[in-house]
Design a protein around this nucleic acid. Structure first.
Ligand code: MN
Ligand code: MN
Ligand code: MN
Ligand code: MN
Lengths: 150, 150
DNA sequence: TCCATAACTTAGCCTCGGCTAAGATACTCG
DNA sequence: CGAGTATCTTAGCCGAGGCTAAGTTATGGA
């Protein structure tokens, strides 16, 4: 019998490369997103966001926080008032809000498909940075549908 | 009225830190997984896995492939026969298989919740590294259930 | 056979995001 | 009003994972 429909398994090289590129970009953005999201959370719930607390919650040394915050500052996302905590710029706040939206949507979706809360929260922390807008929209739609037929 | 059930929004600091730690570990592992998975794919579908092709498909320079492969070799995942391509050790093969399993499951799941194939493939490339076994099991269960009621 | 060229390596550079140890500084409380 | 302490910074280090430019070297086609 003749060789049937050549099984197209590997995508065209450029498409393939484009995917990995997007992935690397997302990874680079992830740290910034997590830091500003956490700063926003601390500001909202504790009234202030101290570098020490960031260090503790990120599981990282204070020196690392100093360095990372310096980068975020250079990137125009964060402002610092030494001994008075960290603050977000407009841009930082926008990023934090987007991050929180994605984070929450991700968690709600994972819960909706049957995951336990703790695992959902834990995995969402990583997954959130790799779901495109299109994917998030699909998740949102899924949630809406599930709700409507409940 | 009295302050009701204190809204626990931020998790305990150690738990929080543990999540970020797991995330950082997953990120570090991701490159190895992607390389090894790609090498396995190339071996299966093209008969050989050349460094040039890896570079092309990963969207990375040849020098970067040399360096990364050296690391993977040190880690006991890959072997090289210069001008004859790359090969996987037992450990590398095991990792590739696990990666492929996760990748495929992720894609199938994304398709099942309504995502288009191209986005599913693209996002899976990043998401696959951040879904815990528990989460993957939940996705698998979801697929099985959906199938049974079709 | 032999040599042009594709495949690979080396050298040297960069940024990010970690770390420890040591130093500076500002709040706070006695 | 100090001084002790918590907070923050600095210095110096590391590995991963990128890059470009400039070599090598093995293969295969004329
Ligand atoms: Mn996160
Ligand atoms: Mn998050
Ligand atoms: Mn991947
Ligand atoms: Mn993959």
């Amino acid at each position: 019998m003749p060789k049937s429909t050549t099984s197209r398994l590997l995508p065209p090289a450029d498409d393939h490369a484009a995917r990995f590129l997007r992935q690397r970009e997302a990874d680079r953005a992830a740290v910034a997103e997590d830091y500003v999201e956490l700063i926003a959370d601390l500001l909202r719930e504790e009234g202030e966001a101290r570098a020490v607390d960031l260090a503790r919650r990120m599981g990282v040394s204070q020196a690392t926080v100093t360095a990372t915050v310096a980068r975020l500052q250079r990137a125009g996302l964060v402002e610092t008032k030494p001994y008075r905590g960290l603050f977000l710029t407009r841009a930082g706040d926008a990023m934090a809000e987007a991050a929180k939206r994605r984070h929450d949507l991700m968690v709600r979706f994972l819960l909706a498909v049957g995951l336990d809360r703790e695992t959902a929260e834990a995995d969402a922390e990583g997954l959130e940075h790799h779901a495109s807008e299109r994917t998030l929209a699909t998740f949102a739609r899924f949630l809406a549908e599930q709700e409507s037929k409940a």
